[in-house]
């Protein structure tokens, strides 16, 4: 018989000052203190980070990849949101 499941946590690491925390993987741990310790041991053995976040995996709500078109396609047609949509004379220089 397999053991009962030990909760799963997603791990985010800030690699350098000024950068955002970035998802690096996950760990199992009974509580948040151990989740942080395990994340440190598993994901930062070579100075990979300055700061770690751990988040219970089941607290994350994700968009469904099947809804990708509905979610993201509408922005594809709105080319006027990009600076290159607008014509300005070359003499203006960099703008």
């Amino acid at each position: 018989m397999a053991d009962p499941a030990i909760p799963l946590w997603e791990v985010f690491i800030r690699s350098r000052s000024g950068l955002a925390h970035r998802h690096v993987g996950s760990v199992h741990a009974a509580d948040v203190t151990m989740a942080l310790q395990n994340a440190r041991d598993v994901y930062t053995r070579r100075g990979e980070g300055l700061s770690i976040w751990v988040v219970p995996s089941n607290a994350i709500t994700a968009s469904d990849p099947a809804d990708k078109d509905m979610m993201f396609e509408p922005t594809g047609s709105k080319i006027y949101r990009h600076p290159t949509f607008y014509d300005v004379p070359d003499e203006v220089g960099h703008m």
Binding site: L8, E10, S57, I60, D64
Partner: peptide, 10 residues
């Protein structure tokens, strides 16, 4: 790396 909890649809 992502949660199993996300795999709730079959």
């Amino acid at each position: 790396m992502y949660t199993q909890g996300l795999n709730n649809h079959d």
